[in-house]
Computed example of a mutant assay.
Amino acid sequence: MDSHARVAGVGRRLKTRSAAPAPTPSAPATDDQLFAQLEQWRAEGRGVALATVVRTWGSSPRPEGSHLAVEQGGAFVGSVSGGCIEGAVIGEAQDSIADGKARLLEFGVSDEQAWEVGLACGGRVQVLVERVDDELFGPLLAARRAKRPVAVVSRLADGAHGLVFDDAVAGVLPLDDAQLAETRARLAANRSGALATDEGANEASLFVRCHVGAPRMIVVGAVHITQALAPMAAIAGFDVVVVDPRRAFATAERLPNVEVSTEWPDEALERLQPDAQTAVITLTHDPKLDDPALTIALASPAFYIGSLGSTRTHAKRVARLTEAGLGDAIPRIRAPVGLDLGGRAPAEIAVAILAEVIQARHRR
Rank of each mutant, 00 (worst) to 15 (best):
L104E: 10
C84E: 11
H161G: 06
V54N: 02
L298Y: 06
V357W: 02
H285N: 03
V240K: 01
T52G: 05
G83L: 07
P256W: 00
L50D: 04
G87N: 05
G9E: 14
V260Y: 00
R17C: 07
H285M: 03
A350H: 02
A36V: 05
A185E: 15
E356Y: 08
P287E: 13
D111L: 06
A315L: 15
I333S: 09
L119W: 11
G138T: 09
G65V: 06
T24H: 14
T16S: 13
A347I: 00
E253D: 10
T251C: 00
A88W: 12
E135F: 07
L163D: 04
V172C: 09
A196K: 15
A20P: 06
A268K: 10
G11M: 09
G83M: 09
P28Y: 04
R364C: 03
Q37T: 15
I358E: 08
E267Y: 02
R254E: 01
E64M: 13
R42G: 06
G83V: 07
D134F: 00
T183C: 13
P149G: 04
D177C: 04
E86P: 07
T16I: 10
L272R: 02
V127H: 02
H362A: 02
V80S: 02
P331I: 12
P25L: 12
T183S: 11
G78W: 01
A185S: 14
R13I: 12
W115H: 14
L68T: 09
R184M: 10
G338I: 01
G327F: 00
F137C: 02
L339A: 15
A69D: 05
V125D: 02
G325L: 02
